[in-house]
Simulated scan of single mutants.
Amino acid sequence: LAAWIFLTIGISLGWWLAYYELGWGGFWFWDPVENASFMPWLLTVALLHSAIVVEKRESLKSWTILLAILAFGFSLIGAFIVRSGVLTSVHAFATDPSRGMYILMITAFFTGGGLLLYAFRAHAMQAKGVFSMVSRETALVMNNVLLAVATFVVFIGTMWPLIAEIAFDRKLSVGPPFFNTAFLPFMVMLALILPVGAILSWKRGRIGKAAKSMAGVFALAVAAGILTWTLQTGKTALGPVGISLGVWLVFGAGLDLWQRTGRKGIADRLRRMFKLPRADWGKALAHCGFGIVIVGIACLTAWAEEDIRVGHINQPFTVGDYEITLEDVSREQGPNYISTKGRM
């Protein structure tokens, strides 16, 4: 969990750096080095959810161990991508093939060794808990499958230029169009499953009861999407769908907390809500964060406007609903750099 938290902080700071500090016009470009950090993050998310099933129901033991090995292995693969120079990236720290060979050997030793031990010992990890098709365990298994497949998609897209060059002697690049098309559907399915899975019972749940509980949240999410579609200037479905999913996740997490407070009065339930275990609050905050990220990504992707042009002083130009005029350009000396600044 601690490793995942620090990796999350690192990725988030990378978003901030790219968007606000460097002014690259975006927060994620599906660059090989970005993907190198994202793949172990996805697998660790799956691992954390799988570990819950092991703790609560003593199921998915061997699968959880396999996820742990793969998450660590993909961390080493990320180091190989960043340090070896086999893939072109503006973020690559070195282009030293000999160093890359050492990292590849380390990756093969630890990951291969872990998988070998797993192959010999997996049969000894017998699952004790049995669960039905409609249960929280099943929802967590679906969560794991979606995250694992999404990781595989990112891995194939990241490594395909290298595979194509070695196997077919072709130089090509795989960019955002592929990743957005192949990756996003899995995240949409994951977002739809999360709130429902969180309120299902362990071992055997009732889909009718869950649907009845989530009806209000579903109606609110649909209403938010329809309202967004009505108010937006450009008729794109990405923004309304993203806002609907965000509302679904955030209010679904809130409903999960609320249902854990019993059936007494509102004041008593509010007091009990703040006394819920930290694990419940952690789950709710994580799901809310996922919803907020979806809203932010959808809104920025759907409604951001970019205009690349040569600007001339005192000549106005229009971007969206704004008229912008370049008033002055100056050079400034920093502590260890010289910058060119434009005043608009």
Rank of each mutant, 00 (worst) to 15 (best):
W202H: 14
R204G: 12
G205D: 11
G205A: 12
R206S: 15
G208S: 12
G208A: 06
K209W: 00
A211N: 04
A211D: 00
K212V: 04
M214A: 09
M214Y: 13
F218P: 01
A219Y: 12
A219K: 01
L220E: 12
A223V: 09
A223P: 00
A224K: 12
A224F: 15
A224H: 09
G225F: 09
L227R: 01
W229C: 06
T233E: 10
T233G: 04
A237S: 09
L238P: 00
G239Q: 01
G239M: 02
V241G: 03
I243H: 07
I243L: 04
L245R: 00
L245M: 07
G246F: 08
G246D: 06
V247D: 01
W248D: 01
V250C: 08
G252K: 05
G252V: 10
A253G: 15
L255D: 12
L255K: 06
D256Q: 09
L257R: 03
L257C: 06
Q259I: 15
R260Q: 14
R263A: 15
R263S: 13
K264D: 06
G265P: 01
I266H: 10
I266V: 12
A267S: 15
A267I: 10
R271S: 15
R272K: 11
F274T: 15
K275C: 07
P277E: 10
R278N: 13
A279C: 14
A279D: 15
A279L: 08
D280M: 13
D280W: 11
W281S: 09
W281V: 04
W281L: 05
G282R: 08
K283S: 02
L285P: 05
H287G: 02
C288Q: 04
C288I: 07
G289L: 09
F290M: 08
G291D: 00
I292K: 01
V293M: 07
V293C: 06
G296N: 05
I297Y: 03
I297N: 00
A298Q: 07
A298M: 05
L300Q: 05
T301K: 07
W303Y: 04
E306K: 03
E306H: 11
D307C: 13
D307N: 13
I308S: 08
R309A: 13
R309G: 06
R309K: 12
G311A: 14
I313A: 14
F317K: 10
T318G: 06
T318S: 13
G320P: 00
G320S: 12
Y322K: 08
